[in-house]
Design a protein around this nucleic acid. Structure first.
Length: 286
DNA sequence: TTTAGTAGCAGGAATACGAA
DNA sequence: TTCGTATTCCTGCTACTAAA
Protein backbone atom coordinates (compact mmCIF):
# COMPACT_ATOMS: atom_id res chain seq x y z
CA UNK A 1 0.00 0.00 0.00
CA UNK A 2 1.34 3.41 -0.92
CA UNK A 3 2.53 5.52 2.03
CA UNK A 4 0.78 8.79 2.78
CA UNK A 5 2.69 11.98 2.01
CA UNK A 6 3.49 12.57 5.67
CA UNK A 7 4.44 8.96 6.49
CA UNK A 8 7.97 7.84 7.22
CA UNK A 9 9.02 5.54 4.39
CA UNK A 10 11.54 2.90 5.41
CA UNK A 11 13.91 1.48 2.82
CA UNK A 12 14.25 -2.25 3.28
CA UNK A 13 17.63 -3.42 1.99
CA UNK A 14 16.45 -6.63 0.34
CA UNK A 15 13.00 -8.16 -0.07
CA UNK A 16 12.14 -11.39 -1.83
CA UNK A 17 8.70 -11.16 -3.40
CA UNK A 18 6.43 -13.83 -4.81
CA UNK A 19 5.12 -12.53 -8.12
CA UNK A 20 1.48 -13.59 -8.41
CA UNK A 21 1.58 -13.08 -12.18
CA UNK A 22 4.13 -15.90 -12.33
CA UNK A 23 1.98 -18.05 -10.06
CA UNK A 24 -1.43 -17.37 -11.57
CA UNK A 25 -0.64 -16.12 -15.08
CA UNK A 26 -1.62 -12.72 -16.48
CA UNK A 27 -5.25 -13.63 -16.90
CA UNK A 28 -5.61 -15.32 -13.52
CA UNK A 29 -3.97 -12.42 -11.72
CA UNK A 30 -6.11 -9.90 -13.56
CA UNK A 31 -9.23 -11.73 -12.44
CA UNK A 32 -8.00 -11.97 -8.85
CA UNK A 33 -7.18 -8.27 -8.82
CA UNK A 34 -10.59 -7.28 -10.11
CA UNK A 35 -12.22 -9.33 -7.32
CA UNK A 36 -9.95 -7.94 -4.58
CA UNK A 37 -10.32 -4.43 -6.00
CA UNK A 38 -14.08 -4.63 -5.66
CA UNK A 39 -13.98 -6.25 -2.19
CA UNK A 40 -11.66 -3.53 -0.84
CA UNK A 41 -13.17 -0.50 -2.57
CA UNK A 42 -9.97 -0.11 -4.57
CA UNK A 43 -7.72 0.15 -1.52
CA UNK A 44 -5.31 -2.56 -2.68
CA UNK A 45 -3.21 -1.42 -5.62
CA UNK A 46 -2.27 -3.79 -8.41
CA UNK A 47 1.39 -3.90 -7.34
CA UNK A 48 0.56 -4.43 -3.66
CA UNK A 49 -1.45 -7.48 -4.65
CA UNK A 50 0.96 -8.70 -7.30
CA UNK A 51 4.17 -8.72 -5.23
CA UNK A 52 3.79 -10.62 -1.97
CA UNK A 53 6.76 -10.18 0.38
CA UNK A 54 8.17 -13.52 1.47
CA UNK A 55 11.54 -12.72 3.06
CA UNK A 56 12.95 -9.33 4.06
CA UNK A 57 16.50 -8.42 5.04
CA UNK A 58 17.87 -5.33 6.79
CA UNK A 59 21.66 -5.05 6.71
CA UNK A 60 23.74 -2.96 9.13
CA UNK A 61 27.47 -2.90 8.43
CA UNK A 62 28.47 0.15 10.47
CA UNK A 63 28.86 0.84 14.19
CA UNK A 64 25.11 0.99 14.53
CA UNK A 65 23.05 1.98 17.56
CA UNK A 66 20.53 -0.14 19.40
CA UNK A 67 17.72 2.17 18.32
CA UNK A 68 18.67 1.70 14.69
CA UNK A 69 18.51 -2.08 15.10
CA UNK A 70 15.24 -1.79 17.03
CA UNK A 71 13.69 0.28 14.25
CA UNK A 72 15.05 -2.20 11.70
CA UNK A 73 12.93 -4.90 13.33
CA UNK A 74 9.86 -2.67 13.25
CA UNK A 75 10.51 -1.78 9.60
CA UNK A 76 10.87 -5.49 8.83
CA UNK A 77 7.58 -6.22 10.61
CA UNK A 78 5.91 -3.46 8.59
CA UNK A 79 6.80 -5.28 5.36
CA UNK A 80 4.45 -8.12 6.43
CA UNK A 81 7.01 -10.53 4.97
CA UNK A 82 6.67 -14.08 6.26
CA UNK A 83 10.25 -14.23 7.49
CA UNK A 84 12.57 -11.38 8.42
CA UNK A 85 16.33 -11.15 8.95
CA UNK A 86 18.44 -8.48 10.59
CA UNK A 87 21.99 -8.91 9.27
CA UNK A 88 24.53 -7.39 11.66
CA UNK A 89 28.22 -6.80 11.03
CA UNK A 90 29.87 -7.13 14.43
CA UNK A 91 31.60 -3.74 14.53
CA UNK A 92 32.24 -1.46 17.47
CA UNK A 93 29.74 -1.98 20.23
CA UNK A 94 27.24 -3.93 18.15
CA UNK A 95 27.43 -7.68 18.23
CA UNK A 96 25.25 -10.73 17.64
CA UNK A 97 24.25 -11.24 21.27
CA UNK A 98 23.28 -7.60 21.74
CA UNK A 99 21.25 -7.67 18.52
CA UNK A 100 19.49 -10.82 19.73
CA UNK A 101 18.46 -9.04 22.94
CA UNK A 102 17.04 -6.19 20.86
CA UNK A 103 15.19 -8.79 18.79
CA UNK A 104 13.57 -10.24 21.93
CA UNK A 105 12.22 -6.80 22.82
CA UNK A 106 11.03 -6.17 19.28
CA UNK A 107 9.17 -9.48 19.15
CA UNK A 108 7.58 -8.87 22.54
CA UNK A 109 6.50 -5.28 21.95
CA UNK A 110 5.67 -5.06 18.24
CA UNK A 111 3.66 -8.27 18.12
CA UNK A 112 5.44 -9.99 15.26
CA UNK A 113 7.55 -13.13 15.16
CA UNK A 114 9.80 -15.03 12.79
CA UNK A 115 12.43 -12.29 12.95
CA UNK A 116 16.05 -13.42 13.32
CA UNK A 117 19.56 -12.03 13.58
CA UNK A 118 22.44 -13.20 11.39
CA UNK A 119 25.91 -11.93 10.53
CA UNK A 120 27.19 -11.57 6.93
CA UNK A 121 29.56 -14.48 7.57
CA UNK A 122 26.66 -16.72 8.49
CA UNK A 123 25.03 -15.98 5.14
CA UNK A 124 28.21 -16.40 3.10
CA UNK A 125 28.29 -20.04 4.15
CA UNK A 126 25.30 -20.66 1.88
CA UNK A 127 26.69 -19.12 -1.32
CA UNK A 128 28.41 -22.33 -2.40
CA UNK A 129 25.92 -24.87 -1.11
CA UNK A 130 24.79 -27.11 -3.97
CA UNK A 131 21.64 -28.55 -2.41
CA UNK A 132 19.37 -27.43 0.37
CA UNK A 133 17.37 -29.47 2.82
CA UNK A 134 13.73 -29.83 1.82
CA UNK A 135 11.06 -27.81 3.61
CA UNK A 136 8.56 -29.71 5.76
CA UNK A 137 4.95 -28.68 5.13
CA UNK A 138 3.20 -27.74 8.38
CA UNK A 139 -0.31 -27.46 6.97
CA UNK A 140 -2.92 -29.51 8.76
CA UNK A 141 -5.74 -30.43 6.39
CA UNK A 142 -8.92 -30.61 8.41
CA UNK A 143 -11.84 -32.64 7.18
CA UNK A 144 -14.95 -30.49 7.09
CA UNK A 145 -18.11 -32.48 6.59
CA UNK A 146 -20.74 -29.76 6.70
CA UNK A 147 -19.70 -26.58 4.97
CA UNK A 148 -21.68 -23.40 4.95
CA UNK A 149 -22.73 -21.94 1.62
CA UNK A 150 -20.15 -19.16 1.90
CA UNK A 151 -17.35 -21.65 2.61
CA UNK A 152 -18.28 -23.79 -0.40
CA UNK A 153 -18.33 -20.68 -2.55
CA UNK A 154 -14.91 -19.57 -1.31
CA UNK A 155 -13.40 -23.00 -1.96
CA UNK A 156 -14.72 -23.16 -5.50
CA UNK A 157 -13.73 -19.55 -6.20
CA UNK A 158 -10.21 -20.18 -4.85
CA UNK A 159 -9.89 -23.24 -7.10
CA UNK A 160 -11.00 -21.20 -10.12
CA UNK A 161 -8.31 -18.64 -9.26
CA UNK A 162 -5.69 -21.40 -8.99
CA UNK A 163 -5.19 -20.78 -5.26
CA UNK A 164 -5.11 -23.48 -2.62
CA UNK A 165 -8.40 -23.13 -0.76
CA UNK A 166 -8.78 -24.43 2.78
CA UNK A 167 -11.69 -24.39 5.19
CA UNK A 168 -11.55 -24.36 8.99
CA UNK A 169 -7.94 -23.32 8.49
CA UNK A 170 -5.55 -23.45 11.46
CA UNK A 171 -2.57 -21.12 10.97
CA UNK A 172 0.53 -23.31 11.54
CA UNK A 173 2.31 -20.48 13.40
CA UNK A 174 -0.21 -20.81 16.25
CA UNK A 175 0.51 -24.37 17.28
CA UNK A 176 1.36 -24.40 20.98
CA UNK A 177 -0.53 -21.15 21.67
CA UNK A 178 -4.16 -20.18 21.36
CA UNK A 179 -5.05 -21.75 18.03
CA UNK A 180 -7.57 -19.77 16.03
CA UNK A 181 -9.43 -21.31 13.13
CA UNK A 182 -10.24 -19.21 10.08
CA UNK A 183 -13.44 -20.16 8.26
CA UNK A 184 -11.55 -20.24 4.98
CA UNK A 185 -8.19 -19.28 3.54
CA UNK A 186 -6.54 -19.04 0.16
CA UNK A 187 -2.90 -20.04 0.13
CA UNK A 188 -0.15 -19.67 -2.42
CA UNK A 189 2.84 -21.98 -2.83
CA UNK A 190 6.27 -20.52 -2.11
CA UNK A 191 8.87 -21.39 -4.80
CA UNK A 192 10.70 -24.48 -3.57
CA UNK A 193 14.18 -22.97 -3.96
CA UNK A 194 13.34 -20.02 -1.72
CA UNK A 195 11.59 -22.13 0.91
CA UNK A 196 14.42 -24.68 0.96
CA UNK A 197 17.10 -22.00 1.31
CA UNK A 198 15.32 -20.43 4.29
CA UNK A 199 14.78 -23.89 5.79
CA UNK A 200 18.46 -24.70 5.43
CA UNK A 201 19.50 -21.44 7.13
CA UNK A 202 16.98 -22.06 9.92
CA UNK A 203 18.19 -25.62 10.39
CA UNK A 204 21.88 -24.72 10.48
CA UNK A 205 21.47 -21.93 13.04
CA UNK A 206 18.60 -23.52 15.01
CA UNK A 207 16.19 -20.69 14.23
CA UNK A 208 12.76 -21.61 15.51
CA UNK A 209 10.57 -20.62 12.57
CA UNK A 210 6.93 -20.85 13.58
CA UNK A 211 5.20 -20.54 10.23
CA UNK A 212 4.91 -22.87 7.29
CA UNK A 213 7.69 -21.87 4.92
CA UNK A 214 6.28 -23.54 1.81
CA UNK A 215 2.91 -21.72 1.81
CA UNK A 216 1.77 -18.16 2.42
CA UNK A 217 -1.70 -17.41 3.74
CA UNK A 218 -2.60 -14.87 1.12
CA UNK A 219 -6.23 -14.32 2.13
CA UNK A 220 -8.11 -15.24 5.27
CA UNK A 221 -11.89 -15.23 5.61
CA UNK A 222 -14.12 -15.12 8.66
CA UNK A 223 -17.90 -15.36 8.33
CA UNK A 224 -19.83 -13.68 11.15
CA UNK A 225 -23.53 -13.29 10.61
CA UNK A 226 -25.32 -13.62 13.94
CA UNK A 227 -22.49 -13.27 16.46
CA UNK A 228 -21.87 -10.44 18.92
CA UNK A 229 -19.40 -7.60 18.61
CA UNK A 230 -16.75 -9.12 20.84
CA UNK A 231 -16.79 -12.37 18.87
CA UNK A 232 -16.41 -10.42 15.62
CA UNK A 233 -13.57 -8.40 17.12
CA UNK A 234 -11.69 -11.64 17.79
CA UNK A 235 -12.14 -12.56 14.15
CA UNK A 236 -10.74 -9.21 13.04
CA UNK A 237 -7.71 -9.68 15.28
CA UNK A 238 -7.08 -13.18 13.93
CA UNK A 239 -7.37 -12.05 10.31
CA UNK A 240 -4.95 -9.17 10.82
CA UNK A 241 -2.23 -11.43 12.20
CA UNK A 242 -2.69 -14.63 10.24
CA UNK A 243 -3.32 -13.54 6.65
CA UNK A 244 -1.75 -11.12 4.22
CA UNK A 245 -5.18 -9.65 3.54
CA UNK A 246 -8.21 -10.58 5.64
CA UNK A 247 -11.90 -10.36 4.84
CA UNK A 248 -14.62 -10.39 7.43
CA UNK A 249 -17.81 -11.46 5.68
CA UNK A 250 -21.11 -10.41 7.16
CA UNK A 251 -24.65 -9.40 6.31
CA UNK A 252 -25.54 -5.95 4.97
CA UNK A 253 -27.09 -5.05 8.34
CA UNK A 254 -23.86 -5.68 10.24
CA UNK A 255 -21.38 -4.04 7.90
CA UNK A 256 -21.26 -0.75 9.80
CA UNK A 257 -20.71 -2.59 13.10
CA UNK A 258 -17.82 -4.58 11.67
CA UNK A 259 -16.32 -1.47 10.07
CA UNK A 260 -16.31 0.27 13.46
CA UNK A 261 -14.43 -2.67 14.98
CA UNK A 262 -11.90 -2.70 12.15
CA UNK A 263 -11.37 1.05 12.47
CA UNK A 264 -10.81 0.81 16.22
CA UNK A 265 -8.50 -2.20 16.13
CA UNK A 266 -6.49 -1.03 13.13
CA UNK A 267 -5.64 2.18 14.97
CA UNK A 268 -5.01 0.48 18.30
CA UNK A 269 -2.92 -2.39 17.00
CA UNK A 270 -1.41 -0.93 13.84
CA UNK A 271 -2.74 -2.93 10.91
CA UNK A 272 -4.41 -1.99 7.64
CA UNK A 273 -5.08 -5.34 6.02
CA UNK A 274 -8.58 -6.31 7.12
CA UNK A 275 -11.70 -5.42 5.14
CA UNK A 276 -15.40 -6.07 5.57
CA UNK A 277 -17.34 -7.64 2.70
CA UNK A 278 -21.05 -8.10 2.29
CA UNK A 279 -22.03 -11.81 2.19
CA UNK A 280 -24.01 -11.34 -1.05
CA UNK A 281 -20.96 -9.86 -2.76
CA UNK A 282 -19.06 -13.10 -2.06
CA UNK A 283 -21.89 -15.32 -3.21
CA UNK A 284 -22.33 -13.33 -6.41
CA UNK A 285 -18.63 -13.26 -7.27
CA UNK A 286 -18.15 -14.91 -10.64
C1' DT B 1 34.79 4.17 50.75
C1' DT B 2 36.84 6.18 46.86
C1' DT B 3 38.85 6.08 42.38
C1' DA B 4 39.96 4.41 37.86
C1' DG B 5 38.99 1.52 34.07
C1' DT B 6 35.78 -0.74 31.10
C1' DA B 7 31.52 -2.21 28.73
C1' DG B 8 27.17 -1.12 27.14
C1' DC B 9 24.33 2.12 25.48
C1' DA B 10 22.33 6.69 23.75
C1' DG B 11 22.61 10.56 21.00
C1' DG B 12 24.16 14.04 17.69
C1' DA B 13 26.83 16.12 13.78
C1' DA B 14 28.54 15.59 9.30
C1' DT B 15 28.18 13.47 5.07
C1' DA B 16 26.54 10.57 1.08
C1' DC B 17 23.07 9.33 -1.94
C1' DG B 18 18.81 9.01 -4.51
C1' DA B 19 14.28 10.83 -5.57
C1' DA B 20 11.27 14.57 -6.48
C1' DT C 1 17.88 22.44 -4.79
C1' DT C 2 15.45 20.21 -1.23
C1' DC C 3 14.14 16.38 1.38
C1' DG C 4 14.38 11.89 3.53
C1' DT C 5 17.15 8.14 4.85
C1' DA C 6 21.46 5.68 5.70
C1' DT C 7 26.13 5.68 7.22
C1' DT C 8 30.15 7.04 9.74
C1' DC C 9 32.35 8.94 13.49
C1' DC C 10 32.53 10.84 17.77
C1' DT C 11 31.22 12.16 22.67
C1' DG C 12 28.93 11.50 26.95
C1' DC C 13 26.32 8.92 30.45
C1' DT C 14 25.54 4.94 33.53
C1' DA C 15 26.54 0.69 35.76
C1' DC C 16 29.72 -2.48 37.17
C1' DT C 17 34.19 -4.23 38.89
C1' DA C 18 38.65 -4.23 40.84
C1' DA C 19 42.29 -1.98 43.12
C1' DA C 20 43.94 1.36 46.42
Amino acid sequence: MQPERDEYTPYIDIVWFIDLVNVLGEEGFSRLHSIVFSWTDGKISQDALRFIPYAAFEVEVSDTTSKTVYSDFHNLAATRAAIKFEVIEEIGDMNLERAKRIRESAIRFCGDADMFVLTPNMLEDFLNVESYSSTPCLLNEREAHSLRHVQRKLVSLGAELNLKGMVEFTPPECVGFYTPRLDAAWLVNVPKAAADLISTIAKKYSLRVARDLCHLTLFGFEYEKETGQKHIAGGVANLSRHSYIGFLITSKEKISTVRRIINKYSLAFGFNNVFVVDEDTILEAA
